[in-house]
Design a protein around this nucleic acid. Structure first.
Lengths: 137, 137
DNA sequence: TATTTACCTACTATGTCAATAGGTAAAAAG
DNA sequence: CTTTTTACCTATTGACATAGTAGGTAAATA
């Protein structure tokens, strides 16, 4: 199940794309528009800066902005960064200790197929596909 | 992320299908073959009985058996029963309080699309598709 | 120098996951 | 009718993740 970290991150990215005017957008404004706790978004944006999804600037006139064009972000990379993994089962989370039953597991092919479906789905969606999609009521 | 409850349940179902000889199969045997804690599987099997996936019989000669043919179970219904929901985001988990932002949410269509993909995938897979798929090494 | 902003560390309440522990009831075999 | 085998039941636990909150520091502009 995709958590708030991933979901909020995508909403922030859309918000930054739609309100882009060349300068930085303060977190306060994003939090107000998105109706999300500013303090919580702070943590999320910190990780987004660290993951090179956005750039932040301190001080008056500071805030955040995208560092690429919306069509240059895939939803998959945003989710993968924020959720830590896009894997749908623990067996497929690239880990140090692989499952010893993998070679005899009759369910593994099922999870691999679903995992590929998930990966392909999110990596074929771009941030630009999501902007101005709401408000149609 | 699909938890052990759902994954183990499917493995149990496959095990019951492959070792079906008309009589009941004791949990002890399933646990041994699947290398899963018997005590933990007990909880899972209890829920599977309650959800009418299998039937249980107490006493000597007792155990569990399928109550339908393998081609009459979808993976989706097994997972949905065991995981509680197949929803991929909290927003789509059929709840009492719907999200007040749903009508303006620009990410909702994305989650709906992924949710449908997931639902269709798992409901198009049958238990019979999974039996005797391992051991190919 | 004051204000605005990001950035940083720490804490916390709640819940879920994956079990474990120890018992009771039921059914068949002896 | 007693023993054995099995499912079934209630309760508890440790570890971890989620979704935040609280309060401070550093940076940049006016």
């Amino acid at each position: 199940m995709i958590s708030t970290r991933g979901r909020y991150a995508i909403r922030v990215m859309i918000d930054l794309a739609e309100n882009d005017n060349g300068s930085y957008i303060p977190l306060k404004d994003i939090a107000a528009r998105q109706e999300i706790s500013k303090k919580y978004l702070e943590i999320i944006l910190k990780d987004m800066v660290a993951g090179n999804l956005v750039v932040g600037a301190s001080g008056k006139g500071g805030g955040y902005k995208l560092c690429r064009k919306p069509e240059e972000y895939t939803v998959g990379e945003i989710l993968e960064l924020m959720e830590g993994t896009l894997a749908t089962v623990a067996c497929l989370e690239g880990r140090a200790i692989p499952c010893p039953r993998a070679s005899v597991c009759e369910t593994l092919p099922l999870w691999e197929e679903y995992d590929k479906l998930t990966h392909d789905f999110f990596y074929s969606k771009y941030l630009s596909d999501l902007v101005n999609k709401g408000e149609t009521k």
